[in-house]
Write a protein that binds this DNA or RNA. Structure first.
Lengths: 77, 77
DNA sequence: CAAATAAATTCCCGATAGGGAATAATACAA
DNA sequence: TTGTATTATTCCCTATCGGGAATTTATTTG
């Protein structure tokens, strides 16, 4: 398990966001079940999200990131 | 109409991303129809997205942002 | 103002998101 | 190994996404 601080990074795909969610959930010692409870969603959604499913709903993803303390910023490329 | 450069900003919701898409699409003088064509999607999706619909699919949103030259970065809050 | 262009809304409808619950698979410890 | 906890997958199911096209509404232009 990598415990270093992530400068997190660029989100280009659902896979990227899935990795971030998985990492930050574990850093906070939450199980998928617990995170689903906090987010008032199902465990299926958390599993799908962490596994990079691209068709997850945008607002649900943002809510999870917010719960985990991850901020999302837009910049010009 | 605000034409200043946006330091873009934090994305907390679908409404935020909708505003960014609308703004950057217009900055590049694209119509919704043209952007939909570039993204191989429908105009309904572009309209929904720009109007802040939260249930749009994550990967579709990311693809639109990429087309518009908007990078998305994750940071710790 | 009217005309032209763009955007939003509506309809039909096939595809699928995602909830809950059960099961299977995987990881981890003792 | 066996047991335990966690995660992934499957099923059933309802709700809705989103494409395409048509229409309505809004915006821009002359």
């Amino acid at each position: 398990m990598n415990r270093e601080i992530l400068p997190i990074g660029s989100i280009k795909s659902a896979k990227d966001v899935g990795e971030i969610v998985s990492r930050y959930r574990k850093m906070q010692e939450l199980t998928q079940v617990e995170l689903a409870g906090l987010a008032q969603t199902g465990t299926r959604f958390i599993s799908d999200l962490e596994n990079g499913k691209g068709t997850v709903q945008f607002d649900k993803v943002m809510h999870i990131l917010d719960l985990l303390g991850v901020e999302v910023v837009a910049k010009e490329r």
